[in-house]
């Protein structure tokens, strides 16, 4: 039986760009170039490796996002995923993690899955909680924040390096997994991969397809509110000295003047 893998990927504003908020205090996605979140490339990579090990596997990449988010899907397809699902609906704009996870969970159920793989966190929202929420909503085990993952005989195994300990985890499929940037470099799409991706199917879904009401999502349907967003004042320019043999001493004097020593 085929192993059905769904990889959740997010389209995010480039972290090296000048990121800011739009007037409605949502992440501005128009002024800064977007891309497939680097941290989700690791999820695509692990999906590809798991699929290579399995006799028969199919990888679907899934995103919830605006029209441009198709770019993220294309990139994942060119890395080697088989097909894509794009959930797009104007009413989704401004959704928080609860609303987004509702849409993702419905789309995952509709697609059919044995294994869901996510990145460790999105590079714009940086919450890192969506995978756990998906597991809760789908009612399947969560095997999250893995630096190592493998699937064998219907069991997913992995290593989770936490603050105080490193743990080996195990769960039966179906399950939700998230992988960290310690899980192994993601591959670059090959020219062949890029060409092949153009022909791979991208299914578009909206809220009606997923039987979700407009008031369950978006700014109105979210369970949190952002009241204000202010740019942090730039740090005041500090003192910069060139080391002429006394740099360490000068630094020590500065630290002493600030009462650190």
């Amino acid at each position: 039986m085929s192993l059905r893998i769904v990889v959740c990927v997010k389209y995010v504003p480039d972290a090296t760009g000048d990121r800011h908020f739009a007037d409605d205090l949502t992440v501005d996605r128009d002024d800064v170039d977007g891309l497939l979140s680097e941290l989700d490339e690791y999820a695509v990579e692990q999906a590809l490796q798991i699929a290579e090990e399995a006799d028969d596997a199919e990888i679907t990449v899934l995103t919830v996002g605006p029209e441009d988010a198709k770019d993220a899907l294309r990139k994942a397809l060119s890395m080697g995923a088989d097909k894509a699902v794009h959930v797009e609906d104007d009413d989704i704009h401004g959704s928080d993690v609860m609303a987004t996870s509702l849409v993702l969970a419905k789309a995952i159920e509709k697609t059919g899955y044995d294994l869901v793989i996510c990145g460790m966190a999105s590079t714009d929202g940086t919450m890192g909680v969506l995978p756990a929420i998906l597991a809760e909503r789908l009612g399947v085990p969560q095997v999250t924040l893995l630096s190592e993952v493998s699937v064998e005989d219907g069991t997913v195994k992995g290593r989770r390096d936490g603050d105080t300990a490193s743990e080996r985890l195990e769960a039966s499929l179906p399950a939700v997994v998230s992988v960290t940037d310690q899980s192994g470099e993601a591959r670059y799409p090959s020219f062949k991969g890029i060409m092949a991706a153009k022909k791979k199917p991208v299914e578009s879904l909206d809220l009606e397809d997923l039987e979700i009401e407009a008031d369950e999502v978006g700014l109105e349907g979210s369970w949190t509110r952002v009241d204000s967003a202010a740019e942090r004042p730039a740090r005041t320019a500090g003192t910069i000295v060139k080391d002429e043999g006394e740099g360490g001493k000068q630094l020590a004097e500065f630290l002493a003047s600030q009462k650190f020593i």
Partner: peptide
């Protein structure tokens, strides 16, 4: 970002510090 910066070789500056 710095309040105080030293432009130099860390192998010189850090041990001296």
């Amino acid at each position: 970002l710095v309040d105080y910066g030293v432009v130099g070789d860390l192998f010189e500056v850090v041990p001296q510090l």
